[in-house]
Design a protein around this nucleic acid. Structure first.
Length: 464
DNA sequence: AAAAAAT
């Protein structure tokens, strides 16, 4: 049987693994680590929880140690991009753990927190940088960071990074990377568009897949209940009371919805916190930290927490509202039953959500078990405690009519999703010289066929 | 259609 020691990783890494009591690699680690140590590009189809972070960070740290190199001032040797701040923080923490017996430096940069410390951290250069796209570009624009020295580039949750609003940043980042580098690309699902992108982006990649396309994790028992939207809150209270919950993640479709659920729970004397993109970064960090520590057992979240967030002991995922993208369901319920544990997913399905659930069952090729409403449900609905007042209800209302900056960003993406309308619109950046070649659709440098794929094979770009 | 990500 393969153990971590068999990979021939740097001794300092093995020491860290031993300290963590890690001996047996997961399937993705088994497949990916040897190839990555050869310097190959990698296309990984995997969710977090499959051991993905270690799969890419261990061989990368090995590379950084084996080919020592002075830290490039204001640069980094390895760059990891993540779609959410929480995930970035989590990845950075893993890298620190694995590199704890080395002198490698790990930094993380994302928005919502002061930038000055990040600028200072970067000034002398770092070995590993984990970032979200917005702040990364901000730092680059401020000349606090450059990407010329990146040897390893990791794109995590690539399918989410392809979304509108991310893709522009991603293209910019890609252009700033040196052409010779190792690319690692991870995506939980691999729909056609992503596969196409991966193809442009990776150079003769090894493909590893540990979850068959968007299928539901086996260990999770899935239940669903048909319930009117208005009565979901009562059902939630009943579920919280009757289920043996260690930790539960409750997903809503909107940020507002998440807050409302928390206020209702509070009204019934049930402690819970919300996490979503309208909360300040400190509130977000705090909520996640309290959920991790067990101070709160219920975390109500938008899909900000659907991916990647790795909290052990999540016994239940409750879909208070059904996601309308089936893949998102897979991500959500993947927050439970992690690392061999068992888990339960319970979905509340309002009449108008039935089609979504159908879609989900088709995509996951699984069917959830019906969970009946409790006997005394009508009574529960009638006696539902009032929610505690929200911030809006408490104090001065609408004393803020100058709220018209919402649309400030609108102009940029112009909202035309698939719109290939005209080659012009490179938006804000203005006519940035940019090659005229038909590279509208090329998010990344075209894949260079130049054989070899070996370390030495210098890939050239732009020479056409 | 919503959410995320820069201020």
């Amino acid at each position: 049987m393969t153990t971590f020691n068999d990979f021939g990783l740097h001794a300092d890494i093995n020491r860290a693994l031993a300290a963590k009591d890690y001996t047996t690699p997961t399937p993705i680690q088994m497949q990916a680590i040897p190839e990555l140590m050869k310097g190959r590009d990698l296309c990984g189809i995997a969710q977090t929880g499959t051991g993905k972070t270690a799969a890419f960070s261990l061989p990368s740290i090995h590379h950084l140690l084996t080919y020592p190199h002075a830290r490039p001032p204001r640069g980094c040797r390895m760059l990891v991009l993540s779609p959410t701040r929480e995930l970035a923080a989590q990845i950075a923490q893993s890298c620190r753990d694995y590199g704890r017996f080395t002198k490698l430096t790990v930094s993380t940069v994302f928005g919502g927190v002061p930038i000055n410390k990040q600028i200072r951290d970067l000034s002398g250069g770092v070995d590993i940088l984990v970032a979200t796209p917005g702040r990364l570009l901000d730092l680059i624009d401020q000349r606090a960071l450059r990407l010329d020295d990146v040897e390893i580039f990791v794109l995590d949750e690539a399918d989410q990074m392809m979304d509108m609003g991310f893709i522009h940043s991603l293209r910019r980042v890609a252009k700033l990377l040196p052409s010779r580098r190792q690319n690692l690309f991870f995506s939980a699902t691999m729909p056609k568009e992503i596969a196409g992108l991966a193809d442009q982006f990776l150079n003769d990649p090894v493909t590893v897949s540990v979850t068959p396309q968007a299928t539901t994790v086996e260990k999770i028992r899935q239940y669903s209940t048909f319930v009117e939207q208005k009565e979901k809150q009562a059902l939630l209270h009943s579920v919280v009371a009757s289920e043996d919950i260690d930790r539960a993640l409750i997903f809503t479709r909107t940020k507002h919805g998440a807050d409302r659920v928390v206020r209702h729970l509070a009204g019934a004397g049930i402690k819970a916190m919300a996490i979503h993109g309208n909360k300040s970064q400190s509130q977000r960090t705090n909520a996640l930290q309290q959920f991790r520590s067990g101070d709160i057992k219920l975390l109500v979240a938008t899909d900000i927490a659907a991916r990647g967030i790795d909290v052990s002991g999540v016994s239940h995922v409750i879909n208070f509202e059904i996601p309308n993208v089936p893949e998102q369901y897979v991500h959500r319920i993947g927050r439970t039953a992690r690392a061999g544990a068992e888990g339960k997913a319970i979905s509340f399905i309002a009449p108008d959500e039935r089609p979504y659930m159908k879609d989900i069952e088709r995509v996951t090729r699984s069917k959830s078990e019906p969970m009946p409403l409790p006997e005394n449900f009508n009574e529960l609905v009638r006696n539902l405690p009032k929610p505690v007042a929200g911030p809006k209800d408490t104090g001065s209302q609408g004393r803020d009519p100058n709220r018209q900056r919402q649309d400030a960003n609108r102009g940029r993406n112009g909202g035309k999703p698939g719109g290939d309308r005209g080659p012009r619109r490179e938006g804000a950046a203005g006519a940035a010289g940019e090659g005229a070649e038909g590279q509208r659709k090329r998010f990344f440098r075209p894949r260079n066929k130049s054989v070899g794929a070996h370390k030495g094979a210098v890939t050239r770009v732009g020479g056409r």
